[in-house]
Structures are given as structure tokens and as C-alpha cells.
Design a protein around this nucleic acid. Structure first.
Lengths: 139, 139
DNA sequence: TCCATTGTTTCGAGACTCGAAGTATCGGGG
DNA sequence: CCCCGATACTTCGAGTCTCGAAACAATGGA
């Protein structure tokens, strides 16, 4: 069974991702950020308790050594700090600094402005959110 | 104006991309491929005339040195060959080898099997294709 | 206390990305 | 025909990203 729409959708997803990175490149560079470090910042919700390395690795689908590297980049740039989780002293949580919060806010705004998805109407976005929700990872 | 759906859709797109790479990692490794080299292979349509480096770079949103590197990876693995474009001898086109064609077919099939998008029905996919078509790059 | 397990880091190697500079070709003006 | 700016690509060097293997520290149960 071939599914032309499936192929097209996968291709469109690839294209959307790569194009978004391209559109964002300049704004990221202004903050000395890259796609990888921005994604890490993106998945740290300032309104939630700070995530552990393990949780971050799951969210980013990357392994532990990689996450250590990315975390170091964020720490070096003063955006997050490592803290020992008092409930399990093996675990480190990533705490946003003031600067981290600010840079995250700015970059999130920039993404929402520049993403090609911003061209869609509210009802189109709602449709899209529903469809993508159907393929979301089972938490 | 904040747009909750826009944020959710952007996040879902990020997640879908990273998860797909994760699901594909093993199959790619079997062919000594990586996400970057597979994307390059993906955008070489076997039924179209072989694309130039310049065209490939546009499709992948990357710059010329990067594309030279990726092309070398594909050449080293015997999947494509460089050929001089007789119409413009400055230009090089990437020609799929027999092996390249075969590996591409296999990996494309694997993606279509493994992508979370495969869980959607035909009508959902059609909707999604329409919506994503609305944000497609103007060729 | 011992020890297997878990969360993280270190190390080394390879892949990726980019800017700056170099080579080859093209195409138009003299 | 010869120049010369523009174009397509490659080379080089530096920094980023990713991963497997191994090390380290803390946990929790026997």
C-alpha cells in the first residue's frame, strides 16, 4: 500500500522543521544559541518545577552524554544552573536563571512570529493541533 | 496576542521531528546513514533529473560547504556519484547509483512505516496535507 | 554491609555546520 | 578575442553535536 498523502506529510514536516531552523538562525545567533540549545531551553517550562537531566533527555530524545554537553552549553552561557535534587542526590535539575528566562521568552516570541505556521488562521491552527495531538507521544 | 494553539503546534512539530529521528536511528545505522545524509537522499527524486548541488542546498536549507560534506558522505557510501552538468560545467549534479536507489527505497519505506503519522486515517492525512500545503515554501 | 541499579559525567571518535578563502567556469563589455 | 565580475563548488579551520564505553556517586534492598 502506498500512501501519497503520508509521503507528502512527512516531506512537509521535514521541510517545515528545516525551514524554521533557517528562519531562526539569525535570531539564535544573536543570543549565541543554536537549534540544539534552543530546543533544550524550549522544553524547560518556567512555570513548572525544574526538570532533571533524565527528564530533559526523554523530552529531547537524546542520550545522557549528549544532554550533559547541551546542559554545559546552557550553563556556560548563564542561562541555567545545575542543582542537586534534594529528593535524590544522584539527580541534577536544570534551573532557569533570570537571563535564561528572559532569553527563552524572547526566542519563543521570535519563533511564534517567524514560523510559517503563523500564516494559518485560528481555526486552521485548532485543526492542526487536534491532528498532531492524535500522534503525540503517549506520556 | 498569545496563541496557545500556535505554541502547541510548534511544539508538536519539534516533538514529531525529534521522535521520528529517534525511531529511525536503528534503521539508518544499518545502512551507515544519519539523519542528515538520509535527508539528502530523500530529496533526490529518482524519477527526476539529477539535482545540482545548488538545488540540493536550497532544498535542505544549508550552505555550500555543508552540502559538499554531505555529498561526500553519500559518495563515500556509494549511494550517489558526482557528474559535471554539460549545460554548465561549473555545476555538479548528484546521480543516484543503483545502491543509492535501493537504499533510498528501503529507508523511505521504513519511514512511512515507523512515523507516528502512519497512525492517522486517510482522511486525517488528507486534512493534514492540505494544512501543511498552506504553509509550504513558495517555489 | 554488600551490591545491583540508577542518574550523571568523562572521554574519545566521528558527524555536522559555518565563514573565509580558493578554483573553475560562465557571460557580458570592450 | 580578452578582461572581469558573478556564479558553482571545494578546501580549510574551528566550533557544535551525537554517541558508545567506561567511570563515578547515590540509592535501596538483601
Amino acid at each position: 500500500m502506498t500512501r501519497p498523502d503520508l509521503t507528502a506529510v512527512v516531506a512537509a514536516t521535514h521541510d517545515l522543521w528545516m525551514r524554521t531552523n533557517d528562519l531562526l538562525g539569525e535570531s539564535l545567533a544573536e543570543h549565541q544559541m543554536t537549534p540544539a540549545t534552543f530546543q533544550a531551553l524550549w522544553v524547560i517550562d518556567p512555570d513548572e518545577p525544574p526538570p532533571s537531566m533524565k527528564l530533559m533527555a526523554e523530552r529531547l530524545y537524546c542520550n545522557a552524554p549528549n544532554l550533559t554537553f547541551i546542559s554545559n552549553q546552557l550553563v556556560d552561557r548563564g542561562l541555567v544552573e545545575r542543582a542537586v535534587d534534594p529528593d535524590d542526590r544522584r539527580s541534577r535539575v536544570l534551573v532557569l536563571t533570570g537571563k535564561g528566562r528572559q532569553v527563552r521568552d524572547e526566542l519563543v516570541s521570535t519563533v511564534l512570529e517567524k514560523t510559517p505556521l503563523a500564516a494559518l488562521s485560528a481555526s486552521e491552527l485548532a485543526q492542526l493541533a487536534t491532528l498532531l495531538g492524535r500522534v503525540a507521544r503517549p506520556d
